[in-house]
Design a protein around this nucleic acid. Structure first.
Length: 571
DNA sequence: GCCGTTTTCGGCCCGACTGTTTTCAGTCG
């Protein structure tokens, strides 16, 4: 699959054209095409071979020619030419908050600045203020922007933003002038990483609300403060935007600020076709500007002629077709989850006893909990020897008597060794209620070998689930090279369920692969991979990722009754 | 650069805020 490569190349072309000062709509066409290709289920190489590129909306003759060249030769003459005209360092400057293509072009043209270092020096020495459109404040903002960029890589994990956002919300709710308040943006859509937090409030006294907003104790800096919109930076460098609107517009604003941008552009297109105009204030008749809807999101989708689309689905990945055909999934909800399959205890590298885990699981009103310690060869994680497995089973039998309402499964997270054999013999595996298999070593294999290794593991009849199927650690480690299509096929053939690992830096499988697997009728399990009882809450992020992958209750084993689970895992 | 049930040319989403200006361009979402 070269889809990502093609998309990144097109994004780069768009950036360079921007810097050259080319037509805005032209660069947008490149970005939209890149986005489309990024979200494509099909292999771009296949589409090129079939010659059907131009049937994709947003790709015309010129782009089809360039994409074909790129796929067939791995290069793009047009990009090479652009690179000679525009120093590539300028693209880095675009990532500084407050700097767009026009300002960057002006910096380069007039002062020859093409690197962040040169810009920092010039701004520090007060050399920018001589330029038209630049002043002292701009210099300060640029210096601050560079600092910010270096402190954060720009995005934080979902759980960090989730906690920050909800803490802020609790603080804001104390203000009596706020009638209604919601988190919007990518946090509402529960994306795996979050760039900034968007909050929307309903109030007739926005100025008081804004005062309250910027006085939040965790605010490090106020970026902007207006009547309807303010932005701050928190101590942990995350940016938070607050918008205040009135009742008539609340639903329209919530829809608008929830995004994704791609979803909204498409939705607006549908509105226009129906003779409407859609913005953050409401849905209006195009000619007369008469207000049609805006109080709730439901009203807006309904008046545009489609079913309500849940925030997690708003990525322009087929949700509009489904909404029009009435085939949107009924997404799994948190209250349907009856337990957690993937928890580590003191027996390996967890920090709590099985007794403690069981007590907390009961408090969470779980029907079951799966204790899955590591297997013997994973010495670093205190993996269990055969002898210790027997002792652990005895302990679980005792604890079960104290918790008759909770089904405590004794599982294992068994390593797949480099040759695809498992870390325990089948005779030992039989002792467990269920078996997870996982890769924890030799990540750097080539794709074919790694895929074969995992599939060999899945072929073992004792195996029930594949843990964190791609092994990625968001922001820290790329997924290992693996052919997901083949893994999905093998899951189907061997009746192995794929895990949605709910630990925030894993979220593995991810939303895109989940949907791909769901289309092949693969079953899933949710596991938090908890190493402490504090991690059990992470199930929330697994559920959100499942929802982003279009999963319904029936797709996820955690929603089944204990009796049905036992039948399926064969215990 | 794309697209077309008003169009093969002329649109293409659009409003808020900031900073630098004296009415607006640039950036952002």
């Amino acid at each position: 699959m070269k889809n990502q490569f093609v998309a990144e190349t097109l994004y780069m072309v768009a950036d360079l054209l921007d810097l050259k000062g080319d037509l805005f709509f032209k660069t947008r066409a490149y970005r939209m095409a890149a986005q489309t290709i990024e979200a494509l289920d099909d292999d771009i190489e296949k589409i090129v071979r079939q010659g059907t590129l131009e049937s994709i909306s947003g790709i015309g003759e010129a782009l089809a020619k360039k994409i074909t060249e790129l796929v067939q030769t791995g290069k793009l003459e047009y990009l090479e030419r652009l690179k000679k005209e525009v120093p590539p360092g300028l693209i880095d400057l675009l990532s500084i908050p407050g700097l767009g293509p026009k300002k960057v072009a002006a910096l380069y043209k007039n002062l020859g600045i093409s690197t962040i270092q040169a810009l920092r020096d010039a701004a520090g020495n007060g050399k920018l203020r001589s330029l038209e459109g630049f002043g002292e404040i701009t210099e300060r903002n640029i210096l601050r922007g560079i600092q910010l960029l270096e402190k954060t890589s720009g995005r934080v994990l979902l759980n960090v933003a989730y906690e920050d956002g909800n803490r802020y919300l609790t603080y804001l709710k104390k203000n009596k002038k706020i009638k209604k308040i919601d988190i919007a943006g990518s946090l509402r859509r529960m994306k795996e990483t979050i760039g900034d937090i968007d909050i929307l409030a309903l109030s007739n006294d926005p100025e008081t609300v804004m005062d309250h907003f910027v006085q939040y104790p965790e605010v490090a800096e106020i970026l902007a403060k207006g009547i309807t919109k303010s932005s701050v930076i928190l101590n942990d460098h995350l940016q938070v935007d607050l918008r205040v609107v009135d009742e008539k517009s609340y639903g329209a604003a919530l829809q608008y600020f929830t995004g994704s941008k791609d979803h909204n552009v498409t939705l607006r297109g549908f509105a226009i076709k129906k003779g409407f105009k859609l913005n953050e204030y409401g849905l209006f008749e195009k000619e007369s500007e008469k207000y049609i809807a805006g109080k709730t999101e439901e009203d807006i989708y309904k008046r545009i002629g489609m079913a309500y689309i849940e925030p997690e689905l708003r990525e322009n990945r087929g949700e509009f077709d489904a909404a029009k055909n009435h085939t949107l999934p009924t997404l799994v909800t948190p209250d349907a989850i009856k337990g957690d399959f993937h928890v580590h205890s003191l027996w390996s590298d967890g920090s709590d006893s099985i007794e403690t885990i069981a007590t907390v699981a009961e408090k969470r009103r779980y029907d079951f909990i799966g204790i899955t310690d590591h297997s013997q060869s994973l010495k670093i994680a205190n993996g269990l020897s055969e002898e210790r497995i027997q002792k652990k089973i005895l302990e679980i039998q005792k604890i079960r008597k104290k918790h008759p309402e909770l089904r405590i499964f004794c599982g294992t997270e068994c390593d797949i060794k480099t040759d695809g054999t498992l870390d325990y013999s089948n005779k030992i595996l039989e002792h467990f209620d269920f078996v997870y298999i996982a890769i924890h070593t030799a990540f750097k294999m080539d794709k074919e070998t790694m895929t074969r290794r995992i599939i060999k593991g899945m072929d073992n009849e004792q195996v029930n689930f594949l843990a964190h199927p791609t092994g990625r650690l968001i922001g820290k480690r790329d997924p290992y090279e693996v052919d997901i299509e083949q893994i999905i096929d093998a899951a189907k053939q061997t009746d192995t369920r794929l895990e949605i690992n709910s630990f925030p830096d894993r979220l593995d499988l991810d939303d895109v692969h989940i949907k791909q697997a769901k289309d092949h009728n693969i079953g899933f399990v949710l596991g938090t991979d908890s190493h402490s009882i504090n991690h059990l809450d992470f199930i929330r992020f697994g559920i959100a990722t499942a929802r982003r992958g279009w999963l319904e209750q029936k797709d996820i084993l955690n929603t089944y009754s204990v009796e049905d689970i036992e039948k399926i895992i064969g215990t």
